[in-house]
Amino acid sequence: MMPAHEIKGALTFLREAERLKSVLRSGHTSTGRPESTAEHTWRLCLMAMLFADAFGDIDVARLLKICIVHDLGEALHGDVPAVAQSDGTDKAAQERADLEALTQPLDARRRAEILALWQDYDSGGSLEARLAKGLDKLETILQHNQGLNPADFDYAFNLGYGVKQTGVDPLLATIRTELEGETRARMAQQPSSQADI
């Protein structure tokens, strides 16, 4: 059984992590509501679970843990959409600092595990981390294609987004090809000049 002080620390951490439910992303749900980072993380984990056995000999639990913590640092200062990121900003450094602050209430072992999983994701050190990165990009593209987005939504962004990360595994590349077809279909439905790309 966990000691009482560790239980209290875990509950404090979970209360703070709940903020991720209110962090909005640039994509929209199929009902037109802005998607939260927590919702993105949930479906990323579902994707990882569904495709895990096709990746061969991997540590599925590690893959899922990495997916769970990959955007946890956004709970404090929010998400910076890929289209809004610039070369001068260090999104990873901000997320790492926020994750360090967020995990303060945890006992040393649990805190170290979360920080190590996030670091692995950020650096792409393990196969599981690289798969998580690829799946993360694919889940974003899937949501962009599925969402009830504003009329001026830039579907063309999907075509170049995460190409490197989705090229690390044949299954990821196959899924990407399928989603690119969906992206082009969404672009063709738009009345704007984006359909000409």
Rank of each mutant, 00 (worst) to 15 (best):
1 M>R: 09
1 M>P: 10
2 M>K: 11
4 A>G: 05
4 A>H: 14
9 G>M: 08
11 L>S: 04
12 T>I: 01
14 L>A: 08
15 R>Q: 14
15 R>S: 13
20 L>A: 11
20 L>W: 10
21 K>S: 11
23 V>A: 04
23 V>R: 03
23 V>W: 05
23 V>Y: 03
25 R>D: 13
25 R>P: 02
28 H>T: 07
28 H>F: 14
29 T>S: 14
30 S>M: 09
30 S>A: 15
31 T>P: 05
32 G>N: 07
35 E>Y: 11
37 T>K: 12
38 A>C: 09
39 E>Q: 03
40 H>A: 09
44 L>I: 04
45 C>E: 00
49 M>D: 15
50 L>V: 11
52 A>R: 06
53 D>S: 09
55 F>H: 03
56 G>A: 01
59 D>G: 10
63 L>G: 10
63 L>F: 12
64 L>N: 03
64 L>C: 12
68 I>L: 10
69 V>Y: 04
73 G>P: 04
76 L>F: 02
80 V>I: 13
84 A>P: 02
88 G>F: 15
89 T>P: 00
89 T>I: 14
90 D>R: 12
94 Q>H: 09
98 D>Q: 05
99 L>S: 08
99 L>E: 07
100 E>K: 07
101 A>T: 15
102 L>K: 01
104 Q>N: 03
106 L>W: 01
107 D>F: 09
108 A>P: 02
109 R>A: 10
110 R>S: 10
110 R>K: 07
111 R>V: 09
112 A>M: 07
112 A>D: 10
115 L>E: 04
115 L>P: 03
116 A>W: 03
117 L>K: 05
119 Q>F: 10
122 D>F: 14
125 G>K: 00
126 S>I: 01
129 A>K: 00
130 R>S: 05
132 A>N: 08
132 A>G: 09
133 K>G: 15
133 K>Y: 12
134 G>S: 01
134 G>Y: 00
136 D>G: 07
136 D>R: 05
136 D>P: 04
137 K>N: 02
138 L>D: 00
140 T>Y: 04
141 I>G: 02
141 I>A: 03
142 L>F: 05
146 Q>C: 09
146 Q>T: 11
147 G>L: 10
148 L>Q: 15
149 N>W: 02
149 N>H: 12
151 A>Y: 13
152 D>L: 07
153 F>Q: 15
153 F>T: 11
158 N>A: 11
158 N>P: 07
160 G>Y: 07
160 G>K: 06
161 Y>E: 08
162 G>R: 05
163 V>D: 08
165 Q>T: 02
165 Q>I: 01
166 T>P: 01
167 G>H: 01
171 L>V: 01
172 L>W: 07
172 L>D: 02
173 A>M: 03
176 R>S: 12
177 T>Y: 08
179 L>C: 05
180 E>Q: 14
181 G>P: 02
181 G>Q: 13
182 E>I: 08
182 E>F: 14
182 E>Q: 11
185 A>P: 02
188 A>G: 14
190 Q>H: 09
193 S>Q: 14
194 Q>I: 08
195 A>L: 09
197 I>W: 14
